[in-house]
Design a binder for these strands. Sequence first.
RNA 1: CGGGGCGUAGCGCAGCCUGGCAGCGCAUCUGCUUUGGGAGCAGAGGGUCGCAGGUUCGAAUCCUGCCGCCCCGACCA
Length: 448
Amino acid sequence: MRLSQYFLPTLRDDPKEAEIVSHRFMLRAGMIRQESAGIYSWLPLGLRVLKKIEQIVREEQNRTGAIEVLMPTIQSADLWRKSGRYDDYGKEMLRITDRHDREMLYGPTNEEMITDILRAGTQSYKDLPVNLYHIQWKFRDEVRPRFGIMRGREFLMKDAYSFDLNAEDAVHSYNKMFVAYLRTYARMGLKAIPMRADTGPIGGDNSHEFLILADTGESEVFFDKDLHDMDWSAFEVDYDDRDVVSGVVRDFTSKYAATDEMYVESEFHDKVEEKKRLSGRGIEVGHIFLFGTKYSEPLGAVVQDPDGKPVPVHSGSYGVGVSRLVGAIIESSHDENGIIWPASVAPFDVGLINLRAGDEATDNACQVLYDQMGDAGLDVLYDDKDDRAGGKFSRMDLIGLPWQVIIGPRGVKDGKAEVKNRATGERHDVEMSKVAAFLRDNSPESSA
RNA sequence: CGGGGCGUAGCGCAGCCUGGCAGCGCAUCUGCUUUGGGAGCAGAGGGUCGCAGGUUCGAAUCCUGCCGCCCCGACCA
């Protein structure tokens, strides 16, 4: 993509409404534009990141055997009356009336609808287990939206729903999602610590929130220092092996970690020796939850078991805040100059900077490199604009592409390109013809 | 929902107290000189001063009402 033909409205000054780093950089880098409180347009650069994150989430869901569907944003009130949540949900739910005076709502979540979909399509225990998910916009009319897309009213969420014949099978479904979440966040370069979460009236151990440590997080967290030493890479697992999967869950839940709502000081002190007690703040980027037959019973999601008896299915729901992750990644990966994208979610792989646009030799060298990198499968943003060097450097640092390939008359004379790593700041003089190979050899292995 | 604050050009702001030509910086456009970390000079374009009403010869400025947005707290992917 040539920058001269792209739409990238960057800002030099901080917009005054943006208090936290991710919000500031997203606005300045031209990723989003606010349309209303908690509602944003996604501009080209932001949309690219959103799609990358969405795709990683999708791939990791599919890997567990979960199946993608797409449910509408608008739902009928009827289903919510059946589950009893229409009145319970309160003002957070945006209620709409259509032209026939039918009561509709903009979905804040989809337990009712997915349970009804399953009910209609499943009659036998032989049809289970099944895990259906979708990645769809949600609307929750938050009292106070803030921090840009981190707490928007409209947000993109992956929500998965598992259905099993009995409680034991449901735990395996839950565990699979737990492991999938570890892998998902790891692939985005994040360490998201699973923490016991409030299970509300249902009880039990089976609810965890996944939190990214960040000063700007909305939750206060308490955890064992040993968690930092766990293997946070996207390790391989056999999802069909119940023991392996539950073993991973056991490992990652063996160390104390709790958000303020579950935190009990005496328990923390009991389980963690003093020098290993850490506390801080975290951003919730996922929440998984096993709720048994809470929705299947009222909505009649029943299958026949091997004895021919009708039994309500056991379910769980599993959410990932896809749009929130864009902000969370920036919170955990930036410097004073701008964003530092992990390669897996970067909007482009490389920024090619032409320091002397209009100079024939420099233009030609850039064109050759642009084609070369494109042929090598790299996604390149080519800054071919007739701007000054300083502005180009600043803008490229701001938008945070993993690599910058800098071409000026100086290098062109020697046949050399300057390759800069955005994260480390390291610069390498690389022969023009070897730039694509250099980037391939020095990029983090693709974890797909 | 309680408390605080803001609304003037794409972004950041001044002007309002004490009513009298709507300004500054950045950005944008044109020309020249420059050209490896946000250049210089000269010129130019861009505004329903959030909206409505009122007071006044005259309102960005004073008064009333409304709308929008931000921040802090109680709630949440």
